[in-house]
């Protein structure tokens, strides 16, 4: 049977080599279509989630994409992705751009390109208050929840090889496992942990602990080797920052007094 698999793979390879490399620029593509298809999260307040009243996907990253689409002069179409589907979907062209809490990592550069950083955070731990976990060092022999295809699962394993990482499809599922005591901590970017904690009925019962296990700069995922499109997106991001539109969107979701308050402590990379 193994042999048959090899043969079929070889056939597939032949088909693949014959496939034409048709790559019209993404920017022209989007403009002629009149629609920007953005891959976003649908289960991750406040970045992207389904609003209870309107049943529409809303959030920080959706507003950011809305602003980008406006600058490109096209309509926005949203497509929900998860941490494990976002890169394949972008690589295959199912979405034009990915705004889904994705950390800009070197190894991801093989598959896709990234914009400049549009959000800066770091990986921490969310634990039950008084649960005896204060840092990654305390995780030896314990179970930690994370999400498939994310950087967090690899980072925490590096920080504490003695822990067991259990990976879920989405962060709320990981948090539910934590709430029900099936894991002793969950780990991911602080910005996500804040949103997760605040979505609970009783946020005081949970705390975010430890030093940054790793820095997590978010970049928009872009198709590999398409510098026209990448330039357009980067320039649009910088323009949003300089005109104060970015800060306005940021305040709307993370400003003081908001449920998911997170002070803006970093600056976007601006090209002169």
């Amino acid at each position: 049977m193994r042999k048959a698999a090899w043969i079929s793979a070889a056939v597939c390879l032949a088909v693949l080599c014959a496939a034409p490399f048709a790559t019209a620029g993404k920017l022209d593509d989007v403009k002629s279509r009149g629609v920007l298809v953005a891959g976003v999260k649908d289960s991750q307040p406040p970045f992207g989630y389904v609003d209870e009243k309107t049943n529409q996907i809303v959030g920080f990253e959706i507003d950011l994409m809305e602003a980008l689409a406006k600058r490109l002069g096209v309509k926005l179409e949203l497509k929900p992705v998860t941490s494990s589907t976002r890169i394949p979907m972008l690589a295959q062209g199912a979405v034009d751009i990915v705004a889904a809490t994705m950390t800009h990592k070197k190894e991801r550069e093989d598959q896709i390109d990234f914009s400049i950083t549009y959000f800066m955070t770091g990986q921490k731990l969310l634990v039950k208050k008084g649960g005896g976990v204060a840092s990654a060092a305390d995780l030896a022999g314990k179970k930690v929840a994370s999400v498939k295809g994310s950087t967090s699962e690899q980072n925490v394993k590096k920080a504490q090889p003695g822990c067991t990482v259990i990976s879920f499809e989405t962060y709320p599922e990981a948090f539910l496992a934590l709430k029900q005591g099936k894991v002793q901590a969950m780990t991911t970017d602080e910005s996500i942990l804040v949103g997760i904690r605040n979505s609970d009925d009783n946020p005081e019962a949970w705390e975010i602990v430890g030093d940054y296990i790793s820095p997590e700069p978010y970049g928009l995922g872009l198709p590999e080797n398409d510098s026209d499109f990448r330039d357009a997106v980067n320039l649009a991001l910088m323009d949003m920052w300089e005109t104060g539109e970015y800060q306005k969107i940021y305040e709307k979701w993370f400003g003081p007094g908001k449920k998911d308050h997170l002070p803006l402590t970093w600056k976007m990379e601006l090209w002169p």
């Binding site: 649908d42 289960s43 389904v50 499809e169 989405t170 709320p172 979505s199």
Partner: peptide, 8 residues
Amino acid sequence: TQINNRTL
């Protein structure tokens, strides 16, 4: 799961 993830 979307509803479950939002309400928990």
